[in-house]
Nucleic acid binder design. Structure first.
Length: 1045
RNA sequence: AGGGCAGUGGCUCAGCCUGGUUAGAGUGCUCGGCUGAUAACCGAGUGGUCCGGGGUUCGAAUCCCCGCUGCCCUACCA
């Protein structure tokens, strides 16, 4: 045990402890210690290796670390592999940027797939290193050396194995479907990749006239669209069978002549459409002339507006079932015209309608989103919008052209607006197992519980999972198709691949382009080549529960925790894959946490400049304070508003803890204290009390961490440190620390402090490992383990005494009440109170613990008696309500009608009282006293304390003595004297009798002298409660100095 | 549009499940006090339409219904 300095730099401390852990291999020793114990299986949701971590990522790992440290303290063998998400578009995009390329063609021609893959790998590994060191800086203990990485062959193989399982269970499917397509990345995307990627954009909003075929009357269908470019591929117009559609007669006033037309519009949208049309046209007259049901419109043929611009449409126009009105339930009347332009190759519902009516799926664009035919061949479709609008105008088919602000999906990595496009992709048939997934969810312990609802609602909406990406950096899809007969095969392992391989390819690395070179032979005799796609990166992390430990059996994770964005992502993706392979959910307990926002509640973003870097916070405050703050600022599942103010509060909490520790240790060091269980025999009640408290605290904390409710955990810790330890217990034992060296009461106080500190740092260590370890290292004895984390968290049930906790709690209330009362009448603590009166119910407690009240309240005598004063009465509504229900107001009136004094007497005599037929029992009412002038009364939970505040000469003298002592002590402190240092004092302006002078001398380790040569003199003005003033002059000199002169 | 969460002093949040006396804590500000562990602490004062409106009840911050606002998730406004 060494002396502790008061001013502590928590950052220095945490670096020192990290060094200690490193140099002594503590993490490994802790792991080794429990390697044969029952397992606690944790699966880390892998962060993406995109660069540096942010506050939210830090929070995430801190939660994990805290829970796992707790589980280690419970003696589990914690399986704590961290993971990394390393494949996928984000990294591809970054590498592309670095090499200044922006298309897939460039990748293949400019730098080559092989080098590209190599660069992606480098990039991922480089970032992993940076992020790992940041996590370590937070004090996160995970098995960094054995992290799982989806880019390793073994992991990739697990992905193949999984896909083969899906294939064998008939859950793998190749299908032509309309899905999201990123024209920049030239790949399809899955729906979960698009989640949260809807951004507000301005798009054209045009109303177009489609002229009916074989019609003499100039009748037009009016359609609305925000994607003019899709008109090139328009095949049908959909209407809702049950809606009303109006034929609107319109007379247009062109400059030279008037024309008469009929427009077909959804009835409720007529006025809105006309209003828009009026902006571009002079409409002289319009009137609804006929109303029909949507179904009556079915089959009407129209003339495609862009026949000349797209020769293909000319061909289509000759086909029977094209360019006509069809029915669709998806049509709404929320906006637009009620008639929906339908392009079968460019919309999911359009696609379905097209299939239903046997219409070709027409999608005339390439992977870059450029037309492959028609007048604007080679032009990016979004750029063609303006040309098309202009052309429609020329053709007099444009009713209105405006702009609309709406949300539209974007690529999650490159932020390009997505297109909808029909392509052939590989799917996992989630639709077939969705019910199972929802059922499994019931067996999971969700924290908080409502995550289940959210999860299930999310799953209900998902479609089949598109797992194929037309990209490079990912797990290659292990499917080979035959050039000749088009059949395909799914390969489940490297071994299998080697067996089937007909050429000789070195399979050192399973990425592209290596595997692409592998050829197989089809039973039909043809050559089989690999499907060039890679797997969706969410598939990678979805494999984690079993792939991270290379297990082909399901080991359910005891615990996972991620941010709320992951509810429909990782919580789902790993469940989906496990459901396919193992028909089960891969986790037992699943917790959700929030996002880290800035002080005002806005998202942290580079553009707003409000990003808080965890490293910076750690540099200033040390890791433990950030950790504690993040776990205590709110309930984990709510978003955190990061605030330096609150961070500072946490720092003061730790300062208090540190000072309590320093106080205890420094006195122990001074007295060469050696902890010894035998001192426990001399425990006083307050010692037993705090020992009981710290055990109760431990017990409660174990429950909270078990859930885990990290907010309750940290709040309880704080309450204990501030209230129980620092503000109460240490105050109580202060005088004991000034006793003689081997005074048993002093030693037992030390022993208590020692015991409590040990217990406290152990429950504190999961959240604040560095500070706990630091304290542990200083106070541990030879026979204790090397690190605090090698200990076991236990509760000493035998020390828990809840009655004692309650009673001391009451004593504390009484002391607080006394202090409050004193304050109210300016009767300061230095002046004793001659007598207080407490209610009779307190008798037993006062007999036992009255000495605490006397000492802390500076009280000479405690009387236990019913205080006689004027009595008032108060109804107890809770009790009354239970008995009298709706009669309560009447009963209260009755109670108030009786003289409280009579009421009380009667109750005491008879046990109950009848008023107006209501029987009143004692528990229905409460009595309060009113008090005479020289007495003050202050309430506490079990009654009132009455204090006699009459001043006598003795009381004043005693108070003055304390006044003087305090001033001398304060001067000692100014002089920066050692606690043991002896002094000579000269005091003028006040006199005490001999005994009192002696007491003062003893308290301040000094001697009063007549003459003094001092460099420190101070004048004091002392005001007593009886309004007298003393001007006192005090001079002090160290005895040491006098002697040396 | 559907689902989830939240709305309580200037600020950050408890309390709500299980209704009950005067709605709490921390922080801020004002005043006072205490102090040989504590740039710490204690007390008083200041500050509240408990988001709004209905309902149930003797009694609602708490339970129910209808709204409003914010955040998140889901969602092809063609």
């Amino acid at each position: 045990m060494e002396e502790v300095k008061g001013n502590i730099n928590f950052r220095k401390l945490d670096l020192e402890i990290k060094k200690f852990w490193d140099e002594n291999d503590i993490y490994k020793k802790v792991k080794k210690l429990r390697e044969h114990n029952p397992e606690y299986y944790f699966v880390d949701g892998p962060p993406y290796c995109s660069g540096a971590i942010h506050l939210g990522t830090a929070w995430n790992k801190i939660i994990k670390d805290t829970v796992l440290r707790f589980k280690r303290l419970q003696d589990y063998n914690v399986l704590d592999k961290p993971g990394w998400d390393m494949h996928g578009l984000p990294i591809e995009v970054k590498v592309e940027e670095e090499y200044n390329i922006d298309s897939k063609k460039d990748i293949e021609t400019k730098i080559g797939t092989e080098r590209f893959i190599e660069k992606c790998k480098e990039f991922a590994l480089k970032n992993k290193k940076v992020m790992e060191s940041q996590f370590k800086n937070l004090g996160v203990w995970l098995d960094w050396e054995n992290a799982y990485m989806p880019i390793e062959n073994e992991y990739i193989e697990m992905g193949w194995w999984t896909l083969k399982k899906a294939y064998e269970k008939d859950l793998l499917l190749k299908d032509l479907r309309v899905g999201y397509w990123c024209p920049r990345c030239e790949t399809s995307l899955a729906e979960h990749e698009v989640r949260g990627e809807y951004k507000e954009v301005m798009d054209p909003s045009i109303y177009v006239k489609f002229k009916l075929k074989d019609d003499k009357e100039n009748t037009y269908l009016i359609i609305w669209t925000t994607t003019p470019w899709t008109l090139m591929a328009n095949m049908l117009v959909s209407v809702h069978p049950n809606f009303n559609y109006a034929y609107v007669k319109v007379i247009l006033d062109n400059e030279d002549r008037e024309t008469e037309e009929y427009w077909i519009i959804g009835e409720s949208l007529v006025e809105e459409v006309i209003k828009r049309a009026k902006k571009n046209h002079k409409i002289k007259y319009h009137k609804i002339v006929k109303i029909v049901k949507g179904e009556e419109l079915e089959g009407l043929k129209y003339i495609h507006p862009l026949l000349e611009e797209n020769k293909k449409q000319l061909e289509f126009s000759k086909m029977e079932n094209l360019h006509k009105v069809v029915l669709g339930e998806h049509v709404t009347l929320d906006g637009g015209s009620g008639l929906v332009h339908t392009a079968t190759g460019f919309g999911e519902e359009d696609f379905e309608v097209g299939k239903r009516y046997g219409v070709p799926i027409y999608s005339p664009i390439d992977d870059n989103g450029r037309y492959i035919e028609g007048e604007w061949k080679g032009i990016f479709v979004k750029d063609a919008d303006d040309f098309i609008i202009e052309r429609l105008k020329e053709k007099n088919l444009l009713l209105h052209s405006g702009k609309i602000k709406h949300t539209y999906p974007h690529c999650w990595r490159c932020k390009t607006p997505l297109l909808f496009r029909a392509t052939e992709q590989w799917f996992l048939k989630i639709s077939k197992i969705k019910e199972d997934i929802i059922n499994h969810a019931k067996g999971v312990y969700w924290v908080p519980s409502w995550v289940e609802t959210r999860y299930v609602n999310g799953v209900k909406f998902v479609g089949d999972w598109n797992i194929s990406r037309q990209r490079y950096w990912g797990i290659p899809i292990p499917i080979w198709t035959c050039e000749r007969c088009d059949s395909y095969e799914v390969i489940g392992s490297v071994e299998e691949l080697k067996e089937r391989m007909i050429n000789d390819i070195d399979l050192e690395d399973l990425h592209k382009p290596t595997v692409d070179r592998v050829l197989l032979k089809c039973p039909c005799g043809g050559i089989m080549r690999r499907v060039p796609d890679v797997l969706d990166v969410w598939y990678d992390s979805g494999l984690a529960p079993y792939a991270s430990i290379y297990s082909k059996e399901l080991k359910k994770a005891d615990f996972i925790v991620e941010g709320h964005d992951q509810v429909t992502k990782w919580f789902y993706s790993q469940h989906a894959l496990s459901a396919i392979v193992f028909e089960d959910v891969p986790y037992k307990k699943c917790m959700m946490h929030g996002f880290a926002l800035d002080e005002k509640g806005s998202k942290m973003s580079k553009s707003l400049g409000n990003v808080v870097n965890p490293d910076d916070v750690v540099e200033e405050y040390g890791a433990d304070i950030l950790r504690y703050y993040l776990l205590s600022a709110n309930k984990a599942w709510e978003d955190i508003k990061f605030s330096y103010n609150e961070l500072n509060d946490v720092r003061s909490l730790f300062n208090t803890l540190w000072n309590s520790y320093a106080f205890a240790i420094n006195y122990m060091v001074l007295d060469n204290f050696v902890p010894n269980e035998e001192y426990m025999e001399y425990l006083k009640d307050e010692d037993k009390w705090i020992i009981s408290r710290v055990n109760t605290l431990t017990k409660e904390i174990i429950e909270e961490l078990e859930i885990p409710h990290l907010h309750s955990y940290t709040w309880k810790l704080k309450d204990f440190i501030l209230n129980d330890l620092s503000r109460w217990y240490i105050k109580l034992i202060r005088s004991r620390t000034w006793r003689e060296k081997d005074d048993p009461e002093k030693l037992s106080a030390y022993q208590t402090l020692y015991y409590v500190l040990m217990k406290l740092i152990l429950v504190l260590s999961p959240v604040s490992p560095h500070i706990s370890e630091k304290i542990y290292q200083n106070i541990k004895t030879e026979d204790m383990p090397d690190s605090i984390f090698m200990n076991k968290l236990t509760v000493d049930e035998k020390y828990i005494d809840s009655t004692l906790e309650e009673n001391i709690g009451l004593i504390r209330e009484i002391v607080d009440a006394i202090l409050r009362g004193r304050d109210r009448v300016k009767y300061t603590l230095r002046y004793p109170i001659s007598k207080i009166t407490l209610p009779k119910t307190m008798e037993e407690i006062v007999n036992k613990y009255g000495y605490i009240i006397k000492e802390q309240g500076n009280v000479k005598e405690i009387e236990v008696a019913e205080f006689k004063g004027n009595i008032s009465i108060k109804p107890n509504y809770r009790e009354l309500g239970r008995v009298f229900k709706s009669e309560v107001p009447k009963v209260v009136k009755a109670i108030n009608s009786v003289d409280p004094k009579v009421f009380l007497d009667e109750l005491e005599r008879e046990g109950s009282l009848k008023i107006q037929n209501y029987e009143i029992k004692p528990e229905y009412v409460q009595f309060k006293m009113e008090i005479p002038d020289n007495i003050i009364g202050v309430e506490f939970s079990k009654g009132s304390v009455y204090m006699d505040i009459k001043l006598t000469e003795d009381i004043i003298k005693e108070g003055l003595m304390r006044e003087v002592i305090r001033r001398i002590q304060s001067m000692r402190k100014d002089m920066d004297l050692d606690i043991e240092e002896k002094i000579n004092i000269k005091m003028e302006g006040i006199s005490f009798d001999k005994d009192m002078l002696k007491s003062i001398e003893k308290e301040v380790r000094g001697k009063f002298v007549e003459e003094i040569t001092s460099d420190y003199t101070q004048d004091w003005e002392i005001k007593t409660p009886d309004k007298k003033t003393y001007n006192v002059k005090i001079s002090i000199v160290e005895v040491k100095k006098v002697k040396s002169k």
